[in-house]
């Protein structure tokens, strides 16, 4: 018994020494990969969705990707699309702290924190032809247009065609082939 007790103590001691150990420098968090992916998906949507002509202020107006409620994603998007274009338009990323701060955007990513304000978001999106993207449960059910879903540890997306039609957005067949259709 005594021997067991002592060997326990030795192990406890060894663990106690190890516990406060910290790893090396902080690099990208594991979450950043997901952000990078989402940013790339959003960039792809900008290429494969067609907006009505009146969605842009003029021939040289930029393509606006807005993010509401998720500053990390906005940052990641900014890095990802730097110097890139949608059609011939320069892509600009804008971050809005809340639904009230939203300006006219061509794509709007809505974080789960704005879940309660989906009604306002959807109303504006339909009027402005804004492609709304979210990643929380019930986003498409609340007339959001594209919802990211994670399945088998892979990022996929679901499209609510009723909503995209109401926003006068045309999804290319290429895109729809990869999408999951949302049905009420």
């Amino acid at each position: 018994m005594m021997v067991k007790r002592i060997s326990s103590l030795i192990l406890v001691g060894a663990l106690a020494l190890l516990l406060p150990w910290r790893g090396g420098a902080r690099a990208d968090g594991g979450a950043s990969l997901e952000y990078k992916l989402k940013a790339a998906f959003i960039y792809n949507f900008a290429q494969f969705v067609e907006w009505p002509g009146d969605a842009f202020g003029g021939p040289s107006a930029p393509f606006v990707i807005g993010v509401v409620g998720d500053p990390s994603l906005a940052q990641m998007l900014e890095q990802a699309v730097k110097g890139k274009t949608a059609g011939k338009r320069e892509i600009v990323v804008k971050y809005y702290a809340g639904v009230d701060a939203i300006q006219r955007s061509h794509i709007l990513f809505v974080a789960a924190s704005e879940r309660e304000r989906m009604g306002d978001v959807v109303r504006r999106a339909f009027a402005d032809s804004t492609l709304t993207i979210g990643d929380f449960d019930g986003f498409t059910a609340a007339s959001g247009m594209v919802r990211f879903i994670t399945e088998d540890n892979r990022l996929k997306f679901e499209v609510n065609l009723d909503a995209t039609n109401q926003g006068h957005l045309k999804f290319s067949a290429q895109l729809l082939k990869l999408a999951r259709m949302y049905n009420k």
Binding site: L33, L37, A39, L155, L178
Partner: peptide, 16 residues
């Protein structure tokens, strides 16, 4: 990732 197609993006694993 922006240089990848959606097809390829959909194969990337996103567990940590």
């Amino acid at each position: 990732f922006t240089s990848m197609s959606l097809e390829d993006l959909m194969k990337v694993e996103i567990t940590s």
